[in-house]
């Protein structure tokens, strides 16, 4: 088993009356991409800030690289790279200077720093923008600069807190690919997001948190196995009666069916040819239908089944 890089035990954090972290336990192993998934306000950023020794907490412990992290744990901090949710760069410095400045907070050797900065620029694809000031960059490029500032010093542990918020699809893909590359180069990644697709795409293990509590943890597949739904079928249907909906719910392997705004959504657990059986029913009962598609359960379904609400509620 890999060595744990971050161990959070029974972490409790209160903001006056609000319980932001409720006995949170996490263990992030060396070399993995660990996803922290949860809706806005679920406690992801609070947990990250506790790991970084920025926030005080009421109870529990946080160990990074085997040691309790403190604000002056400079040796531990040397090996941590952070990409914060908000873009944090100097408006008066160019792209190159910003990366050099932040890299310089960790790396003293001038030659090594120069090399790292060049590699970081290459990594985020900002080669053509090195002399640009941040205000001249688009939102996506700015996010890339934000990432470069956080990872230029080649840390062993990289924490990315919602790095793709307000980013165009092209930049998002580039960022996600970059994170996988960093991981391939040996870095342990903690990735927080409320975009389940991203977490599904890149994370090896995922913890879903809600209201400061960890409600599920495991690999993508393990999490999906926790719920009943194996298949989700969507059919655009016009004029489905209550009786017909009740009939569909009685079909074998169907455990839930909803009909809203001319869309029929059917959840099936196990079984084969579920779609054929459902379409057969609609044809027999002369119910006209249009677009039909099926999908495998997502992490949103996991979240929905456990908490009773959507991830993006």
């Amino acid at each position: 088993m890999s060595q744990p890089v971050v161990v959070i035990e029974n972490l409790v954090k209160r903001y006056k009356e609000v319980l932001a972290l409720d006995h949170l336990n996490l263990r992030i192993n060396e070399g993995e991409i660990f996803g922290l998934l949860g809706p806005n306000g679920s406690g992801k950023t609070t947990a990250i800030n506790c790991v970084l020794a920025l926030l005080s907490f009421d109870k529990g412990s946080v160990k990074v690289f085997g040691e309790e992290i403190q604000p002056d744990s400079y040796e531990i901090k040397k090996n941590i790279g952070v990409v914060l949710q908000n873009v944090a760069v100097f408006e008066e410095l160019t792209v190159f200077e910003n990366i050099d400045y932040f890299c310089g907070l960790y790396v003293r050797d001038k030659r090594l720093r120069k090399q790292y900065v060049s590699e970081a620029i290459e990594f985020v694809g900002l080669n053509e923008y090195t002399k640009f000031y941040p205000k001249k960059l688009s939102g996506g490029l700015l996010r890339r600069l934000n990432i470069a500032c956080g990872i230029a010093h080649k840390p062993k542990l990289i924490i990315l807190d919602e790095p793709t918020v307000a980013v165009d699809p092209q930049s998002r893909n580039r960022i996600l690919e970059g994170i996988q590359n960093l991981n391939a180069q040996g870095a342990t990644i903690i990735y927080t997001s409320h975009y389940m697709e991203e977490v599904e795409q890149i994370c090896g293990r995922i913890a879903i948190i809600d209201k400061g509590r960890k409600i599920a943890e495991g690999t993508n597949e393990e999490l999906k196995k926790m719920i009943k739904a194996d298949e989700k079928i969507h059919i655009d249907v016009v004029g489905l009666s209550e009786g017909q909906l009740a009939d569909i719910r009685k079909l074998s392997h169907v455990y839930q069916a909803d009909y809203t705004e001319n869309r029929l959504t059917i959840y099936c657990n196990g079984g084969k040819h579920n779609l054929v059986r459902i379409l057969g029913y609609l044809q027999e009962n002369e119910v006209s239908f249009g677009r039909v598609y099926t999908e495998l359960p997502t992490l949103n379904d996991v979240f929905l089944e456990i908490t009773g609400k959507e991830l993006r509620d």
Partner: peptide
């Protein structure tokens, strides 16, 4: 002041001694 700007937060979590900075 890390509780005022993200830039300060980024500087606070760096491995540079705060007094020197």
């Amino acid at each position: 002041k890390a509780d005022v700007t993200p830039l300060a937060a980024r500087r606070s979590i760096a491995s540079t001694n705060r007094f020197v900075a």
